[in-house]
Amino acid sequence: MAKAVSLQSIDIVYGGSGGYRAVAQASLDVAEGEFVSIVGPTGCGKSTLLNAAAGLLTPAMGQVAIFGHVLNGLNEKAGYLFQQDALMPWKTARDNIAIGLEVRGVAQAEAHRQADDWLAQVGLQGFGGRYPHQLSGGQRKRVGLAQMLIRNPTILLMDEPFGPLDAQTRQIMGNLLLDLWSREKKAVLFVTHDLEEAIALSDRVVIMSSGPSATIIGDHPIHLARPRDAMDVRLDPAFHALHKRIWEQLRGEVMKAYQGGVV
């Protein structure tokens, strides 16, 4: 299968040459329609890697290729779901979702029709007229999800999208994401600090070392049957075996980050 995202031994440095080297020699491929999670200790540069794939950051060394083409500027094939609130607070949920089509030149009526359709798909039917501050954290994430998906990107980049939510809401959102993803498979690069979440959702879990000069040190295929239920799969004995194996590797990095004073 073709590679949707290919990070080719990239280095990312903050603050010019001689600055802080967050990521060093990181390589990672995501195939079309593949769900890959990046797990690593706090501050290891997971989000940095994602921003490089989005084109929001330019690597100091190495290159990013999207469907075989070297990325230059923003990645237009990708949708990005941020950890923090990224909705425009002055637009209603419907307008926030529709805007991705409107800037593309789709007529407003049509964009609104599709936005309402997406509102229903993320379980927010009838919430179109609400402003972000009138929605709960989970509802805002749903709007964010719809806002990203309405543009039909072939690559989804997600930066701990469910991080701020409570445990139950996270699992519900995980299932929603799997459900939407299974209808039309897109390449997903999903950053999380939660190993269980990563295993429950992904085809592959990659482990990042603790920073600075973080890199990818482990790559674990997840052969759990699909379609999966993000909640029930956690009870599967195979899930436990995977969790045990990956955690052994991750724990070493977490302890290193801890001793390095990052945590």
């Binding site: 929001l56 990708a78 949708g79 609130d85 805007i99 800037v103």
Partner: peptide, 17 residues
């Protein structure tokens, strides 16, 4: 907010938008 701005750019907005 830089996040709102980055998100808007990822949604395909040019400078005018």
């Amino acid at each position: 907010s830089p996040v709102v701005l980055a998100n808007a750019r990822m949604l395909g907005m040019d400078e005018k938008q």
